[in-house]
Design a protein around this nucleic acid. Structure first.
Lengths: 228, 228
DNA sequence: AAACTGGATTACAATATTGTAACTTCGGAG
DNA sequence: CTCCGAAGTTACAATATTGTAATCCAGTTT
């Protein structure tokens, strides 16, 4: 599924590479000049770039700089020049690999896969609080209590998140309000009270639930795990 | 500010401890029996418990079990029994410290502080993505672009979060929709389009911004850092 | 030049969110 | 027993959110 930008001025080599890569399942976009490559960049950011060093209208290494403004996609230089100095220059200009012609197509494939693998961004794991029988997911805006998932409005989710992040400890409504609204006001108490009430109802939190929200005499709240 | 539950049946010792601890700035609740202590637990969860082992209506160590159902607050046993077996039994029953009478009040204070310190829950740091000039905070539901903070509706925040978690990589609207709604549908494209449009407007994202949301020809989006 | 295509934006209506205020409960004090 | 007060719940009205559909707009194609 990955998109590869292939920049190569030799039409025979381009054709061979393109058909091979497409056969391997890649989505290949081709350019035979720096200009055309820059143009393609505008409409499709590739996951990887195969770059010939010598192009009719410029140096592939110079193109690297342009490319880097658009993406961190790995660049593999393809060139006949195998002098150490050239290789070094290639890497120094921002390349991630350097393959000298002629090369084996399966080696090319392996190097491409290696680059994509290394470059693969780790899936951003959703920020969540996971307690036994209570999961709070800030990305999806949902909470799961005793296996029952429900979507919560922001305010209720924020309160639950704060309570859960301090399971068993008291938090004053002042602090909750302050954390959510950035400042405290005169009757923050009522607002928090109402939203906690709504939260309980949304979560269907009752005597049978594994957790309870208790309030102390002096305006503080605690989320507690109830053990029967 | 911490709440301490003091359970002690000797009224003299209780009075001395209570006045000392209150002078030190603690909020002290007293009980002279297991029953009363259990009752106080209902209305105020303490941050720490000072527990005499021998009480008129039961053993302090048994009370520990009841206590643990309500809170993970540290328990310090206060007792005249200094046999190794007693000490071991105290810790085994869930105690966090064990002080034998008579004790120095300042030692008591030091031990209390140590317990509260160790038990202090680390502030839950908000889950957020921080890029240069772009911060996305899922807890507060806000994004800050180029120093300009604004609150975003859930859908826009989710999209921005997904894009930012893969800065520079393409994501298809299919994938965005799938990640947000849990399934894909026929015209997910329009929904995502509209919300991205709203997102740009909310963020005041324009030619001058450090980031842009670009779309490729085949229905994919990329968040890119723009370098001038 | 007219028609067309497909993305971007705007309009709109149904729904959801949320602070405030009114109301209900319930335990303790008088 | 009644009254009081505080916590919990419900009602309500002003806003905000959001999917759908209509409109706009810039390139192409005919």
């Amino acid at each position: 599924m990955a998109h590869i930008l292939l920049v190569e001025d030799d039409s025979d080599i381009m054709r061979i590479n393109q058909s091979f890569l497409e056969k391997e399942g890649y989505d290949v976009h081709c350019a035979d000049s720096v200009q055309q490559a820059a143009f393609l960049l505008e409409e499709c950011v590739p996951d990887l770039v195969l770059l010939d060093v010598m192009l009719p209208d410029g140096d592939g290494m110079d193109f690297c700089a342009i490319l880097r403004q658009k993406t961190q996609a790995p660049v593999i230089f393809l060139t006949a020049r195998d002098e150490n100095d050239d290789v070094i220059k290639g890497f120094r200009s921002g390349g991630d690999d350097y393959i000298t012609k002629p090369y084996d197509l399966n080696v090319l494939k392996a190097r491409i896969e290696a680059q994509l693998r290394r470059n693969a961004k780790p899936e951003a794991q959703h920020p969540r609080i996971e307690l036994p029988d209570l999961i709070i997911d800030l990305f999806s805006g949902t909470a799961e209590l005793d296996g029952n998932t429900c979507s919560l409005p922001q305010r209720e989710l924020q309160i639950l998140y704060l309570l859960a992040s301090r399971l068993g400890s008291r938090i004053s409504y002042h602090e909750i309000y302050e954390k959510i609204y950035g400042c405290d006001v005169e009757d923050s108490k009522n607002t928090i009270r109402v939203n906690i009430s709504r939260l309980k109802k949304h979560l269907a939190m009752d005597d049978m639930s594994t957790y309870e929200i208790a309030s102390t005499a002096d305006g503080e709240y605690v989320l507690r795990r109830v053990i029967f």
